[in-house]
Nucleic acid binder design. Structure first.
Lengths: 242, 242
DNA sequence: CGTGGGGTTGACTATATTCAAAAGGCGTGG
DNA sequence: CCACGCCTTTTGAATATAGTCAACCCCACG
């Protein structure tokens, strides 16, 4: 089932069998991308959207000097560039972090869905607004938190999203393939400062990090440092405790 | 015409007469809010959305100490909390900056639109994704730019959006009711630092600011400082030069 | 076994914050 | 009409946080 992780774990957002089937049939093909490959360049005309099946991807914008700012981070189940369906062109680039597998959904099939299955259309709309809610939280993160708070927040968010798709262990561990450079690009920090801040988080026994893995040792304290509350992820009740 | 500014100035986003009429009829009533009033608190159930007719509003999130981060700034024509339609609850607060007039659109009428007028529904969807694109740009702004760049970017964006609804003069002047405290809350800076940074912008003959008004004296140079390119606003061709 | 990317460290610098106080502006009520 | 109070803007000095630059280590991989 290609779409098994789409909106998985979200509150009251179940798809009917008919809708699952329609979405499944809207998939034209599956593509594989290698790690660290830019898959979309800003401004290109978009004719299809991609549902991330496996692997990790991000969206980013480069500044004049080529310094990168991540504006989104995606895990399996995310309908990554569904924004391109109403927008036609995107304002940012997209790239893989790890090797990734994506389902390609042509826009004409999405148009058909908006005409024939309005409830499913509203769910697709919902999923794009979930991204918007995450964007707002990222603005808050880089605008109001200091380095340790920003990184704590990113880790809490990622853990909550991974848990929603059943990819976080009971021990607080989950796959996390971002380099310190990537973390810096997501949080508006240099990799040097990320390094020093991670050392503080480790020294305080809040996290273990390394080898593409993170383990959150003290979720409550980490959430407090990152001022993290998972409301904005619109998770199911079982998943909402921080 | 209550909806005259909705999607005004956007590229290829014209509403048909039938759609305009449907939107107009979806308005249940018009409400007036005083300045500096919080009109929505995070987490509340939303049963209607509001189209801003006149005045200026913002969305914000407070941190633990009550320090505020603006995550959005709204001018007339913005369908402010349309996000609440698919989301049902919002993750942030909304407030007026100035006195404001809003059109109230109940959600059941929006549901009807998604069922009867799929093209209009896609335009509504589009308008929420425009917000998302602006969110991404704000992440970039606070994540990658320094103080002078952030403020320059905010002013360029506001000018472009005001121009799209015919509210910017040929001389680069437009209404701008944010205090220096507000600017700081939008840019992740303290009001003290905003003050000093505005003085630099003034001293460099880039802007005039004061009395609820801004005039951009050197648009090209200001855009360069703020690394501003208006692509993400999806404006009509006439409005896209920086 | 060499190469390169990611991680780590140190010294120095730049940018923005904090705290405190004063000056300016505007509306309200006496 | 003026005084008052409050909010906004401005200024200064001291401090904190994060960036810069440069070097080195380590391990995985070819």
């Amino acid at each position: 089932m290609l779409t098994e992780n789409f909106l998985r774990g979200r509150r009251r957002r179940q798809l009917t069998d008919r809708e699952k089937q329609a979405l499944e049939q809207a998939v034209a093909r599956v593509e594989h991308y290698p790690a660290r490959r830019t898959t979309y360049h800003r401004g290109e005309l978009v004719r299809h959207s991609t549902l991330l099946l496996s692997g990790f991807m991000c969206r980013y914008m480069d500044d004049r000097d080529g310094h990168r700012q991540l504006v989104g981070y995606h895990i399996p189940g995310d309908f990554i560039d569904l924004h391109g369906f109403p927008l036609q062109r995107l304002d940012h680039d997209m790239a893989t972090i790890t090797a990734a597998e994506v389902a390609i959904v042509p826009h004409d099939r999405l148009t058909a869905i908006t005409e024939e299955l309005p409830h499913l259309a509203r769910l697709l709309w919902f999923s794009t607004l979930l991204d918007a809610a995450i964007h707002r939280e990222w603005i808050f993160r880089v605008g109001r938190l200091d380095a340790i708070g920003r990184i704590a927040h990113l880790l809490c968010e990622t853990h909550a999203r991974m848990a929603a798709i059943g990819r976080a262990g009971d021990d607080g561990g989950f796959e996390f393939p971002l380099t310190q450079q990537d973390i810096g690009e997501a949080c508006g920090l240099t990799s040097v400062h990320v390094n020093r801040t991670l050392q503080r988080l480790r020294a305080d026994h809040l996290i273990e990090i390394g080898a593409q893995q993170v383990k959150i040792l003290d979720p409550a304290r980490l959430a407090r440092i990152g001022e993290f509350s998972p409301d904005y992820l619109y998770l199911g009740d079982a998943l909402r405790t921080p």
